[in-house]
Design a protein around this nucleic acid. Sequence first.
DNA 1: CGTTGGGTTGAACCCACTCAATACGCGTGG
DNA 2: CCACGCGTATTGAGTGGGTTCAACCCAACG
Lengths: 251, 251
Amino acid sequence: MHTAMLTAAPTASRAAAPRPSAPGAQVNASLHLLSDAVAMQRRLVHAGDRLFESGQDFDCLHILHAGFFKTVNTAADGREQVVGLHFKGDWMGFDGIAHGRYGCDAIAMDTGEVWSVRYDALLAASSGRRELLGLLHEAMSREISRDRDSLLSLGTLPADARVADFLRYWADALDQRGLRADQITLRMTRAEIGNYLGMTLESVSRALSRLARCEVIRFIGKGRRELNIPDLEALSRFIQAAMAPQPRVLQ
Amino acid sequence: MHTAMLTAAPTASRAAAPRPSAPGAQVNASLHLLSDAVAMQRRLVHAGDRLFESGQDFDCLHILHAGFFKTVNTAADGREQVVGLHFKGDWMGFDGIAHGRYGCDAIAMDTGEVWSVRYDALLAASSGRRELLGLLHEAMSREISRDRDSLLSLGTLPADARVADFLRYWADALDQRGLRADQITLRMTRAEIGNYLGMTLESVSRALSRLARCEVIRFIGKGRRELNIPDLEALSRFIQAAMAPQPRVLQ
DNA sequence: CGTTGGGTTGAACCCACTCAATACGCGTGG
DNA sequence: CCACGCGTATTGAGTGGGTTCAACCCAACG
């Protein structure tokens, strides 16, 4: 009866346009371009490992080849804030360039693999090879854009919408890497998510429960860490609805 | 050669350590190093002018030589957020590198002067000249660090402390440029400050009134845009006090 | 003058926080 | 096997900080 075909393809929700190559291939291409040009040190990490810490001398940039990281910023008075989430292909350590010391902690949330490159070696290797420099600058530029999107979310969205926006961001990150974007395995506690979003763990829990009640998300398994997003558009609609809860009866 | 000075100078932002040269000289040195190496276009701006807008094709990076800018990020649904404030020596437009389009609006808050350099020309000029690349990377790195500090403030501080932290940041920015840090002329309305800090203009007004009542700041003139900070330490103490208002009578 | 934009302040409301109880999953060890 | 502890998640009740709505002041300006 209904147009089943249109709703039947959950993974191909956004881009109907044909991609230039297999999704996520750019990430691998970039990694190989890099590792061909300059010596990189590979390192396996496990959940909880710290790749670097705030205050530590800066010498390397790090590229995530597999796994999942968070970066945590700490104030002088001890306040801590998760300021970034990092997936495959993301770079880490940019904040060390300016001051010669890393400015935050990078903590693995899962087993993974990191390729590290000395900053001076990278500079040396990229002189004359514009495409290497392009990779670096693109990564830094993307980081800046991403941080500003976080600021926008923190500054303008109420709690429920912030959680929904967080899930949308995660799904986008998966999609851009060619992974299925409708299945998310949160590798963070509610407290970590709350810290990242500037709210308490209880508010995160309530927001997720509401999202599930509205059937915008579905929990999978009993850990409540794994969830399914049937329709990304519905997520966006939920954000809009959470922003303007006034039905505006008059006028 | 001033190469040693250029790499050493930015680190001495906080400490009472003796500065290598007159405060703020690094900024001028950097600007001259740049303008000697690559063609830059100078442009005068007035309050309200837009240097670039979100979506516009990216081709230039911009360095603020005089004046004061804000950058505004806009969501697809129209939400707007001030995501950055820019003083003399700051670069703007980094978010355009990755996507080929600027990601936010840069709006002058005062008359000033901007030096613009084509990104490709800068890359060409900096091949083989490591110090030019260093300037660029340092500026991008500082931007990332700054954004993360904003996230920390947005995510962990109550309204009053956020306003106090904002003033401290402004004073620091003045200090780093060799200007007197105890005298601040806000060139923003309460609404703009509130937007930047993720709160309403009324909350900003109340917070400033409380800061004045506690004599942490003093208003100068009747516009209530100009203020004096007698003691920076008192500002930091105020932030701490606003964070833990519980006297903890028992235990 | 009246108008307009910005700032302050009060009163009422409400969203998100705090505090608390409960439940669940998963090890460890009796 | 169950008991136990521990970390994590959910949910409720009550509170409070920040918002909303409103009135008012002030300075600039035509």
